[in-house]
Computed example of a mutant assay.
Amino acid sequence: MIAYRAMLDVPRELVAYVARLLADERRARGTRRGSRALTCWRQALFALVWFRKREDIAVLGAGFGISRATAYRYHDEAVSVLAAQAPQLPEALQRVQSEGWTFVILDGKVVDTDRCAETKISKKGKVIDAWYAGKTHDFGGNVQAVMRPDGLPIWVSEVEPGSAHDLTVARQHALGALYAAAARGLPTLADPGYDGAGIGVHTPLKQPADGRQLDVDTRTYNMLLRSLRCLGERGLALLTQGWRALQHVTASPSRIGDLAKAALVLTHFEHRYLSR
């Protein structure tokens, strides 16, 4: 086996931040000093390498001198402490409004996973793969995200099976808080997949089924809506491209929500958006 040095493109301050969270977790658990295979700093570095590069956890652990079981345990611990720092949607919306933004953007993402054998009964009464997403024609988990107009993601939801429609997942996890924000003057913009979401969630108007053309006012409304929404859609790219761990998940798909929340916290740190 040949060892080599590598560079990680994250600031030193981010490693220190994750290390502090891990140190707090160890104190809460009553972990004895010197009883762990890695220091908090080394465990934080191990976790950030995985988030950024999505390397095999066992192989990455071997590079840090820890066993396969320890590597998975340290990985799960780091994900959990980071995910716990993710903001709740009501407080995230309140902060956005206090900063002077006039709307937010709602969008969904199916995070790619390995095939999962779990099944469910569809609305048509057929047995289908619960984690198969017709949206991507692949297996994955559906997470919803809310972004500021400039594209910074401010919140991500828990994961639901990929077979769930974006609107269904949004109803479960987001629409209640978005309605309350709209009543305070902070509406939501969304793509046509959220048509019927309700008052305060604005979507483009669809072409009439009978083939008639939309009138000029409606076409202008749709154009303005899309032009305002397009910048916000980079928010999911910030999460999935900046942190490659979300490009394909080989762990249980039920962990996707925690992974997305952890990536959100890391993104907030990089953009100096963490609440102090």
Rank of each mutant, 00 (worst) to 15 (best):
Y17P: 12
Y72P: 07
D138C: 07
L89D: 03
A86E: 05
G108A: 15
A245E: 04
G200M: 04
S35N: 03
L239E: 03
M1Q: 04
K123A: 12
L167G: 13
K53H: 06
L236E: 08
N222A: 02
G162T: 06
G141H: 11
F64G: 07
T102Y: 02
R73Y: 14
H268W: 14
P161C: 12
G140Q: 11
W41I: 14
A260R: 04
A117G: 12
G61E: 00
G63N: 01
T240W: 00
I121S: 12
D258G: 09
Y179H: 13
A170L: 11
D210V: 14
Q97N: 00
C40H: 15
N142S: 07
Q207A: 07
L8E: 05
L45F: 12
K123G: 14
Q241C: 15
Y221N: 07
P253H: 08
L8D: 05
L186W: 07
V146T: 06
E13F: 00
Q88L: 12
G108M: 01
V216Q: 10
Y179S: 05
D76S: 14
H75A: 13
R219Q: 12
S35K: 10
E55D: 09
G198K: 00
Q94C: 11
H202Y: 13
D215K: 03
R32V: 15
A84P: 08
G134D: 03
P149H: 04
R68T: 10
K261L: 10
N142Y: 08
A209N: 10
R54Q: 09
D195E: 11
R29I: 01
S35C: 05
K109H: 07
I256Y: 01
G235M: 08
T267A: 15
P161A: 09
I2S: 04
Y273I: 02
L214M: 04
Q172P: 00
R115M: 14
G198P: 12
R68V: 05
D114L: 10
A37K: 12
F103V: 10
E91G: 00
G61T: 01
L239V: 06
Y221C: 09
Y74A: 01
D107N: 06
L22K: 14
T188K: 00
